[in-house]
Simulated assay, not measured.
Amino acid sequence: MLKGRQAFLEEEEKNLAPYAVKSNASAERVYEEEDHPYRLPFQRDKDRILHSQSFKRLEYKTQVFVYSVGDHYRNRLTHTLEVAGVSRTIAKVLGLNEDLSEAISLAHDLGHSPFGHAGQEALADIMRGRGGFEHNKQSLRVVQKLERKYPNFPGLNLCYATLAGIMKHGGDYDLSDLNIQRREDGPSLEAQIVDYADEIAYSTHDIEDGVEKQFLKLEDLMEVEIWRRNYLESKIKYPTAKDELVLRATYRNILNEFVSNLITTTSANLSGLGISSIEDVYKSFRNKKRIVGFADTLTEELKELKHFLWNQLYRHPDVMRMSENGKETIHLLFQYFEKNPSKIPDSYLEREKEEGRDRIICDYIAGMTDRYAVETLKSEGIFWQPY
Rank of each mutant, 00 (worst) to 15 (best):
T80H: 06
G95W: 01
L96V: 05
V69S: 08
T89P: 00
R88V: 06
V83T: 05
T89L: 02
N97C: 09
H79K: 10
G95C: 06
A84T: 01
E82V: 04
S68K: 12
L94I: 02
V93K: 03
R88L: 08
N75M: 07
V66A: 14
K92R: 14
T89I: 13
S87G: 12
K92N: 15
H79G: 01
K92C: 05
V66L: 10
Y73P: 07
G95D: 02
R76Y: 10
Y67R: 12
S87F: 01
A91G: 07
L77C: 09
Y73K: 07
D71K: 12
E82C: 04
G70D: 11
K92I: 01
L94S: 02
S87A: 15
Y73E: 09
D71I: 04
R76H: 14
Y73L: 15
A91T: 02
V83E: 01
N97G: 07
Y73N: 10
R76M: 14
G70I: 12
Y73V: 12
G85K: 07
L77K: 15
G95V: 04
L77D: 01
R74H: 15
R76E: 15
L77Q: 13
G85V: 01
I90L: 06
V93H: 00
T89Q: 06
S68T: 15
D71L: 13
L77R: 13
T78S: 13
Y67F: 14
G70F: 08
T78Y: 05
T78N: 11
